[in-house]
């Protein structure tokens, strides 16, 4: 409780530490990660191990180059969290170099070249993802089929061999194992003149609200996120504003034209909206800081996700939406300063 201090206060909240916060966020992600691995196979597990290893190696290398103490930064959990978040954005059968490049770019460029933890203006995991998306779009669309849809599944050895050497068992081709993501399918088929109803019934990747299997991952992410709010590790403002604005704007277009616009629930439970709302947009380093600012920030991301998904060049827009609002965060903070005690209302 007490701490050595030059001046008051002489006590510190025993439960609050950067490390504790990071590891609780990681803990909240684990059930969804387990479901992801359960549904999409060993690739997810291999990706996580690979990404975490690369992240810690890059972190240690950068700290050494920058002449910073290794221990506090390596053990704070932030690099592990970045790696884990990036794995959620990568296809389960992503080749090793894809994961490595993404994680290395996130840690080396997006984090350390900006000054390390706390000084990065952009979410490192999203920067890593966007670099891959822009550089290797084809690799990122090869998403394995979830359990129950795939005719073939790879065992641990075959997955390891594919990820590291690209070699598949003799009787298999990669097309038999993968397909486009639900959001990608929806986008392509809408472009072909199909209606949302037709797409949802005709395409096997869809379950009852969104992509098959994804609903479970998203529900577990939602549970993890709610736990984070309950434990006061994040505030409710960003997730509620993000999902709320996404829901409202998709509902609006759904009501106007249900044939061409997927339902609000589809938008919430397909793709990375839930992950983004609770685990990515809430990264405090890159988000707005006042509660009113957090509402604007979250709402901005929600609207941008819809805009990018509906009219942009990419199937999902969470990464770009988050990065765009990262840029806006300082301005939002400037205009949403809370009214200080004893200052007039107009002063706010």
């Amino acid at each position: 409780m007490f701490k050595k201090s030059l001046s008051s206060p002489h006590i510190h909240h025993p439960g609050y530490s950067t490390q504790g916060m990071m590891f609780r966020v990681i803990l909240a992600l684990l059930p969804a990660a387990a479901a992801y691995a359960w549904l999409f196979g060993w690739g997810v597990v291999i990706n996580i191990l690979l990404a975490v290893t690369v992240a810690l190696a890059c972190e240690a290398a950068m700290l050494t180059v920058r002449g910073r103490p290794l221990r506090p930064a390596i053990t704070d959990g932030s690099a592990i969290l970045t790696a884990l978040l990036l794995v959620f954005a990568l296809p389960p059968l992503a080749p090793w170099w894809l994961t490595t490049i993404g994680v290395a770019f996130a840690i080396v460029v997006a984090k350390h070249l900006y000054g390390g933890l706390g000084f990065n203006p952009f979410n490192p995991a999203m920067i890593g993802y966007v670099v891959l998306l822009v550089s290797f779009p084809r690799e990122l669309t090869l998403w394995s089929l979830p359990a129950g849809l795939a005719a073939h599944t790879l065992d641990f050895g075959a997955t390891l061999s594919y990820i590291f050497s690209g070699a598949l068992p003799a009787n298999l081709s990669i097309d038999a194992l993968t397909s486009a993501t639900p959001l990608d399918v929806m986008r392509t088929q809408l472009g072909l003149g199909q209606t949302t109803g037709e797409i949802m019934t005709a395409q096997p990747v869809f379950g009852f609200v969104g992509g098959k299997g994804w609903i479970w991952i998203n529900l577990l992410l939602l549970a993890g996120g709610v736990w984070l709010i309950y434990r006061r590790l994040i505030n409710w403002h960003i997730p509620v504003a993000l999902l709320g604005s996404l829901f409202v704007i998709s509902l609006l277009f759904y009501l106007l034209d249900p044939k061409q616009s997927p339902s609000p629930l589809f938008h919430l439970f397909s793709g990375a909206a839930i992950l983004g709302a609770f685990f990515i947009a809430t990264d405090p380093v890159t988000a707005a800081t006042s509660n009113i600012g957090r509402l604007w920030y979250g709402a901005g991301i929600g609207v941008l996700i819809y805009v990018i998904r509906s009219w942009g060049g990419f199937p999902d827009g969470v990464a770009f939406a988050v990065l765009l609002m990262n840029m806006a965060a300082p301005t939002i903070d400037y205009y949403t300063k809370p009214r200080v005690f004893g200052h007039g209302k107009k002063d706010a």
Binding site: F2, K3, M21, G116, L117, N235, A287, T289, P338
Partner: peptide
């Protein structure tokens, strides 16, 4: 009663203070 804590870490802008 003095807690052995790790050194001061960078601010992560969590907003607990605000």
């Amino acid at each position: 009663e003095i807690e052995q804590r790790p050194s001061v870490m960078p601010c992560i802008r969590c907003g607990n203070c605000a």
